[in-house]
Structure formats: structure tokens, C-alpha cells
Design a protein around this nucleic acid. Structure first.
Lengths: 377, 377
DNA sequence: GGTCAATATTTCATATCATGAACTATATTG
DNA sequence: CAATATAGTTCATGATATGAAATATTGACC
């Protein structure tokens, strides 16, 4: 069994990349003796490995790294249809994947997922698969087991975590899709280790999550990051009703669904790629719709930046939108509404929608437990 | 010297109020033996005291409490002119206070403050004064010593903490005014121990700070909570220029200064109390100005709630505004733009502006160190 | 090539700290 | 008064981190 000390080492190596025993001791404020002994255990258990020595003056230091093959994880995304199930290693690399229809019926859903999991666990790795994570578009209880509400699947108070855990015999964690995404980014992604950043994704809906002080910002009722229903259109003459009951929410103008609807209302094609092509050809209505959507998104992003002050905002969206007037309006509107920062670089990183992002984030939920331990250092 | 264990006990008692040794052991997950021994030390050092036994069945339990007189703190507010200096005990009760002119000149400012501190430290308490905290309207560096920028005082990169510390011989912490306010509320106030809440104050400027996951949300560059420059007026025909260089910021419509300016532009008195009186008498222009200001404040508050999801939002403002159309518009606009929560109670707590709030918050910065220890448990 | 200085890592006796079990203390209840 | 229940203490024990000294492994310099 691993102790708190072991987990400290593991999480530091995972966050900060390979480091020698001496560097670890310095960073963690522990004695070299303690680190040495803890590392010995982790090497014996083949969780860490030694890398090629680094030569300086004096005895070379031996960087220690987390072994990718030390543990494997299953990640499930119900964010969209089809559902995606992946098998990742401890570095978040996907080694195998499956797509299957997303079933709303709990029993059908669980059986098809379990079948996929059994398939992905085949072979010698089986014993080292350490947990399952699931991302879904909805609210999840604090126990990270129960889905409190999921409009897309029609679920209410569904103990999907408990059921999966019982059927697979593996510990299981459930998360909201945006939260899973940012937790994956924090553990595996380019922004690994950054203590303050945000992720926004724009698809049929709009999702947002924030890491602050190195931890996920959940809020009092788990509703933090609900950018999607930010009151953006305040001119009530133009505010559209939203499914949440209010009017003028961000998602009524800036989501793919909203853009498609607006286009159809104007007699244009509802398909995003086609609409973007029209806009690129200077079609005035298409330009207007996409500009309004992008600027609204930018305004909401400015609110986010002013309130939360992240170091980066990762924005995942369709390349057609990113490269056209939507992306341009988003950037311009954001930057014109935030206080000038000393670093003049843009803090917005566009990123393509990659199909496995959510499933990877889901797998990271289980990996997190392996790396940070039961107390979540 | 106190160990981590001692600070665990101290912070638990401070957060959760008096508890017996057994209750502490349960809450902190420590053995009764450990708690017993740690408490013994703290009693001997007169940091804790035993309260009257509570009788149940079996041996009565002895609640332990933090002794208010165990330590004293100096709190300085430069939030407004005059500056305020208070002496508080470990419970945040003000025992003595002084007001003095707020000097922009560093040397004059420091000398007058030191004089006040010397005066407040007179008498037998002197030895138990453990630290100094200061709140000022500006940006503070991460070391909590240097004021990076303060428009009201014209300061830039002023090591006010270092100077005060050297002159008084006491450890000193500097904070932004809103941050000091919320940290005081977290340590001493009614919301003590709540892990997710926000504080907004409305005076000549607008300040905001948030506690999330039990910690202050500072953001990447210390700029979190900058609600004051949230882009609220998006209709550029009506957006007023703001001192930050943008247009339509919240503070150009909702701050006392902005309200006064708007009133004067309309040929009305700039004084808030008088304006409120006119509005109460149904003066249409006064009503319009105050409604617009309050609704703007409410819109920004809705953004805050949607993004951060606090359990409470404490709003400190002039009673004249709270009880009139401003407060009403603020509440209505906020509630009409947030997702319905299961608990239908309002999450907004109005509170009067009390003159010593900021100085008390400042004192809490030093008290925090005494209670949580150097590692800030 | 040999020696020295520099740095990394390990060893080990020791100090610290929390624990569990047994014990003591002090109440209520009948 | 005995039985019962809960609070708090004592103490031997075990786990864990520590500091200092020893060992290991290199580059630099003569």
C-alpha cells in the first residue's frame, strides 16, 4: 500500500515532469533520505522508472519518471452520440478505443458499456486496469457517483457510477463533461500543472470549467462555470427564449445549435461548414449571424476573465468557426473588454475539437486517484 | 513553537466554534490521544480555554474555545480617507481604534501609521500584539508585502509591508481591500467557515472578492473578482468611457461616483441620500438613474453567480440604496438571470457598510497567520 | 593517468509524532 | 448503590521523517 509520502512523489512527478531524487527533495521540502526510501518502494512496484542520467558537474542525477504502463484506465464519454470508450495509460495516451450507440435506457446503456469495457480489458493488461471514469453532459452529485440530472439522456438521480462499479468490479468516477475535460487537461494536457486556467468548448451546447488555486472550481451546488446561461443579450427586444426558462442566455446565440437556427430563420443553410463558407464569401447575413455569435461568446469570455483571471483560456471549437469571423469576433470582443494585462500575449488558446477529448478526460478521473491517492493530495 | 497538529486544532476550533476533545478527534480524524496531548500544550500556553462542561449521558464533555485575549492584531484600512487603524483580539472584536488622515506620501503615511500603532499597543497587551494587516484599494504582489499599483494613493511598486514591518518590528501582511474584507468575513464573520461565498461592496468604486474551495480566489495575476470593469453596458451608444480605457464598465453606471455624476448631468443633486429621497418620492429621472444602476449591478451579479456558484453573496452598500429602487432592481435583475436553484431562498445578503469592516479584515490577515500557522493549513 | 572538487544518493541511528488499548474520571439512570 | 455511558489520559509501540556521515559517480585540472 502507498502512503501519503509516496503519493506526494507521484503527484509531483506527474505535475512537474521527470525529476531526480535531489530535485524532488528540494521541491517537496523533504529530506533526501525520505525521498530515497519512498522512491525505492515505487521503483520496486514498477510505478516509477529511472531515466538516462543527466551529467553536470559531480555525480550525474537520475531523473525519475512515472511509468506509463504502470496502470491503465477506462474513459467513457456520453457527451455526444455515439458514446466513446477509450483505454489509456498513466500518461493519458489512448491505446484502444470503441464507439457505440449512446443509449438512454439505463440497462441497455450499462450492458453495452460493460461489453466494451470487457473487450478493451482483454489481454495481459487486464490486471492493471485500475479504474473507470465517465463524462456526461449534466449535473453530478458530490459523491461523483450519481447523475443528478442529464437532459440529453433524460436521467434524474441515476446511480450510474454505482451500477458500473458493481458490474465491472472497478472503482468508477462520474463527472460533468466540461469538468472531465479540464481535469484531463490538468493531468495529461499541455497546461498540466497550471494552477489557474479555464476551458470552454463550443458544440451544440456550450461548456465551461475552471481550475483555480490548482483545484476544480465546482461551486456551492456544483454549478460553477455555467457560462452557457450567462445573460448576454440584454436587449429584450432581441433576446430569444432559452430552454432554461430565461431569455438571452449565451447559448441562444453562440452555440452551434443557435447558429444553425438563426441561419435557417434567415433562409440560409443550417450547416456550420456551409454557413462559414458563405461568410468567407462575404455573404452579409451569414457574416452578421456569425459575428453576433462570436462577439457574444467573446463578451461572456471577457466576463469570465475579469472574474476568474485565468492564465489561459482554452477554447475548443470547430475549425470552420475558429478561422472565420466567429473566431475573429470572439478574440476582438474579449480583448476589448478586459483590463490590459502586463503580458500582452493573448490568453486565449484555440484548439480543435478532438473526438476523444472527453473520453480521455474521463479516464483521467480514475488516473487522478491512482496518482494523487485516496486523499487527493 | 506550535506544530502542524496544533494549528489543525486551532483552525478547526476557529472555523467550527467550540468543541470537545472527542469531537475534535472525530472531525480531524486523529486519535483521542493525539488531540489530548496537543490540547494540553495549547491550554498551557493559554491559547485555548475550557468552557463549562456539557452534560449528556456519561462523563460531561468539555468544550474548548480559542481565547480571544491570546493574541492581538493591528488592522489598517487605507480604503478611504480617513485611514482607520484598529486593535482587535483573536475573535475579531475591535477593542480600540483611531482615525487619521490618509497620506499619499509614503514617509508621512508610514510615520503617522506607526504613531497610531504605538499608541494602540500601549499597556500590558503590548507583548501579545502579534502582527499587522493592511487593506488598500489596489493591486498587491504575491508576497503580500508590496503594493504593485494603487490609483487612489498614486503608488507603484511600494514595499509598504517591508517598511511597516521594519518600523514596527511586527510581521505585516498587505491585501487588496476586497480581499481583506472577504478574508475577514471568512475568519471572523457570520459566514465563517463557508467554503464558497462572495462579497461585493459598492462605494465610490465597486469591489468584489470570492472564496472558493475554502480559499481566496486570487487568479493568475491577482486580478480575480474585477467585477468593477465587467462589460455591462454593451449598447455603445450609451456606454460611458471608464478610467480603465474601455467603455461601459460596471463602475461607470453602478458605483456611487457614477450615480452622482449621472444625477448631476440630469440637473439633480449628486448626493446619494438626497437622490434616494427623490426616487422614493417617485421623481422619474431619479428613479431611472437608480434603477439603471441597480439593474446593472444585478446583471453583473448574475454573471458572478453563474460562473462561480457561491452559496451566498454578501452585498455591502449604503442603506439608502439598499432599501430603495436600487436594491430592488439589483435583486430582481440578479434573480431573473440565474438558473433556478433547488433552494428558492435568495442567496444575496445585504449588509450595511460598517466603517471598520476593512480595518477588521486587515487585522484578520495577521490573525490568520496566528491561527493557521506558517503553512496556512 | 591521478587527484580533487562537486554533486547525487544511500545508510543508519535518532527524534518526532500519531496510534491503539487499557485505564481513569465523571456523569446519568434506575 | 451498581450499572452504564461517554470523556479524557497514560503509555508502550510502531511508523515516518531527519541530520549527519558514508558512499558513489562524475568532470576538471594538473
Amino acid at each position: 500500500m502507498l502512503s501519503t509520502g509516496h503519493y506526494l512523489i507521484l503527484s509531483s512527478l506527474s505535475r512537474n515532469g521527470p525529476e531526480s531524487r535531489s530535485e524532488l527533495a528540494l521541491r517537496l521540502g523533504m529530506s533526501k533520505a525520505a525521498v530515497s526510501s519512498l522512491v525505492r518502494d515505487l521503483l520496486k512496484q514498477e510505478i516509477l522508472c529511472e531515466q538516462a542520467p543527466v551529467h553536470g558537474s559531480g555525480r550525474p542525477s537520475v531523473p525519475l519518471a512515472v511509468r506509463a504502463e504502470a496502470a491503465w484506465f477506462i474513459g467513457i464519454s456520453l457527451q455526444d452520440d455515439p458514446a466513446i470508450v477509450v483505454l489509456t495509460d498513466l500518461h493519458g495516451t489512448v491505446h484502444d478505443r470503441m464507439e457505440l450507440p449512446r443509449h438512454a435506457d439505463l440497462e441497455t446503456c450499462v450492458s453495452s458499456l460493460c461489453e466494451a469495457i470487457t473487450y478493451l480489458r482483454r489481454g495481459p493488461r487486464s490486471a492493471k486496469v485500475s479504474g473507470v471514469g465517465m463524462a456526461l453532459p449534466g449535473f453530478v452529485a458530490n459523491d461523483r457517483q450519481t447523475c443528478l440530472a442529464c437532459a440529453a439522456l433524460g436521467w434524474r438521480d441515476v446511480d450510474i457510477g454505482g451500477v458500473l462499479s458493481k458490474r465491472t468490479g472497478l472503482p468508477t468516477w462520474i463527472e460533468n463533461d466540461a469538468n472531465a475535460l479540464i481535469l484531463g487537461e490538468q493531468l495529461f494536457g499541455a497546461l498540466r500543472g497550471s494552477p489557474d486556467f479555464s476551458v470552454i468548448f463550443i458544440s451544440n451546447g456550450i461548456g465551461c470549467a475552471n481550475i483555480v488555486n490548482g483545484r476544480l472550481l465546482r461551486g456551492y451546488a456544483g454549478g460553477a462555470g455555467e457560462m452557457s446561461h450567462a445573460p448576454i443579450v440584454t436587449d429584450m427586444a432581441h433576446a430569444l427564449p432559452c430552454r432554461c426558462g430565461n431569455r438571452g442566455c449565451l447559448e441562444t446565440v453562440a452555440s452551434l445549435l443557435a447558429i444553425g437556427n438563426a441561419a435557417r430563420r434567415a433562409g440560409l443553410p443550417g450547416d456550420i461548414a456551409e454557413l462559414a463558407r458563405l461568410a468567407a464569401g462575404a455573404h452579409p447575413e451569414a457574416l452578421s449571424i456569425l459575428h453576433h455569435a462570436g462577439a457574444s461568446m467573446g463578451l461572456a469570455t471577457a466576463h469570465l476573465i475579469q472574474l476568474i483571471d485565468p492564465s489561459h483560456v482554452v477554447v475548443m471549437l470547430d475549425p470552420n468557426l475558429r478561422d472565420g469571423i466567429y473566431g475573429h469576433a470572439l478574440l476582438r470582443e474579449t480583448e476589448s473588454h478586459i483590463l490590459r494585462r502586463p503580458a500582452s500575449r493573448s490568453m486565449i488558446d484555440f484548439r480543435d475539437f478532438e473526438p476523444d477529448s472527453f473520453a480521455c478526460g474521463a479516464a483521467s478521473l480514475a488516473a487522478r486517484y491512482f496518482i494523487f491517492g485516496p486523499d487527493g493530495v
